[in-house]
C-alpha cells in the first residue's frame, strides 16, 4: 500500500499577484491535474525542507489546481518567494467539501472576507459551471482596502456578467480611486437583507467577521441548517491521525472543513 504522507511533486505553472500579500499559484504535475477535488476540499502543500501546510483549493482547470495563499508564516513566505517552474509537494484531496448536491435548486448567498473568498470561489465557479442546477447567486465580499481585494478579475468582470449573479464589494477603508461602498461586510449584508426563503448562506472570513455575519443571519431569520461555513485549523497529517484539528470528537481534516451552523452548535465552541 502507498504511504499517505508522501506528496506528489508538482510544478508551479503560473503565479498571479492578487494583493500585496496574496498570490494565486497554479500547480501541475507531470500527469496534469494532481487530482480533482470537490469545491471546498483541501490539499497539503509542501516546500522541502521549509514545511507543509493545509490549504483550501480555490479553483481548478482542466489540467491544474489553484491555491490563493496569503503570506502569514514561514511556509507561505517561502511560497511567495517561489518562482514559476519550482517544485511543490502536494497530497490530497482532504475533507468533505461543500454539499454541492444538497445545494442544488437553492439561491446561494456567499459572504466572504479577505482571503476567506478562496474556498467560496471554488464553489461559486462550480455553480456557474453547472448553472441550471443552482438558483440566484448573491456574492458579498469585503477586504481591508481596495488593494486587499482578491480575485479582482472575477469580482468586477466575470461574476457580475454571469447570469443570475449579483456581486457587492465593500472595503473597510477606501482610497482615492475607490468608488464602491465603504464599510464592514456584516453591515452590507444587513443592508442588502436577502430573505432567507429558499436560500443558503455560505460564509468564510476572519473570525470576527464570521461572528457578526452569523448574528446578522440569525436576525434575518436564517435557520442553522441554512448557514454553512468552512473552518481552518493547524493540521499535520490530513488523515485524522495527528490529533490537533479536533473539534470535540470531529476532525476538521476528515469531517470538515465545511460545517453547517447547526453542526457547529452541537460541537464545542473552540475555533
Amino acid at each position: 500500500m502507498s504511504n499517505p504522507y508522501v506528496p506528489v511533486i508538482a510544478r508551479i505553472e503560473r503565479i498571479i499577484e492578487e494583493t500585496p500579500d496574496v498570490k494565486t499559484f497554479h500547480l501541475v504535475t507531470a500527469a496534469g491535474k494532481p487530482f480533482a477535488p470537490r469545491p471546498g476540499q483541501l490539499a497539503m502543500l509542501s516546500l522541502l525542507p521549509v514545511g507543509e501546510g493545509m490549504f483550501s483549493v480555490s479553483g481548478q482547470g482542466e489540467a491544474h489546481l489553484e491555491f490563493a495563499i496569503k503570506k502569514v508564516g514561514q511556509l507561505t513566505t517561502a511560497l511567495h518567494e517561489a518562482e514559476v517552474g519550482q517544485a511543490v509537494g502536494i497530497r490530497g484531496p482532504y475533507g468533505n467539501g461543500f454539499p454541492v448536491e444538497e445545494l442544488q435548486g437553492k439561491d446561494l448567498v456567499f459572504i466572504g472576507g479577505g482571503i476567506g473568498l478562496a474556498p467560496l470561489r471554488s464553489l461559486i465557479n462550480y455553480c456557474l459551471a453547472h448553472r441550471p442546477d443552482y438558483g440566484e447567486l448573491l456574492i458579498i465580499y469585503g477586504a481591508r482596502t481596495p488593494a486587499d481585494l482578491v480575485f479582482k478579475e472575477e469580482l468586477f468582470r466575470h461574476w457580475p456578467q454571469a447570469p443570475g449573479t449579483a456581486v457587492h464589494v465593500t472595503v473597510d477603508a477606501g482610497d482615492a480611486g475607490w468608488q464602491g461602498p465603504v464599510g464592514l461586510v456584516p453591515a452590507l449584508l444587513e443592508q442588502l437583507n436577502p430573505r432567507p426563503q429558499g436560500k443558503v448562506a455560505i460564509t468564510c472570513g476572519p473570525p470576527v467577521m464570521i461572528k457578526f455575519v452569523l448574528q446578522a443571519l440569525e436576525r434575518m431569520g436564517y435557520r442553522d441548517d441554512q448557514v454553512i461555513t468552512t473552518l481552518e485549523r493547524r493540521m499535520k497529517c490530513g488523515l485524522g491521525k495527528c490529533g490537533r484539528c479536533n473539534l470535540g470528537s470531529k476532525y476538521v481534516c476528515l469531517d470538515g472543513p465545511v460545517f453547517t451552523l447547526g453542526q457547529l452548535k452541537a460541537l464545542p465552541a473552540e475555533y
Binding site: 508522501v6 516546500l47 517552474g85 519550482q86 517544485a87 509537494g89
Partner: peptide, 20 residues
C-alpha cells in the same frame, strides 16, 4: 522517518518513498 528527499535546481524531489 516518512520519506527522504533531494533538493535539485528546481526544487525537491522525493528520493526514497517506498512504503515501509
Amino acid at each position: 522517518k516518512l520519506f527522504h528527499y533531494r533538493v535539485e535546481a528546481e526544487g525537491a524531489v522525493i528520493s526514497e518513498s517506498e512504503p515501509p
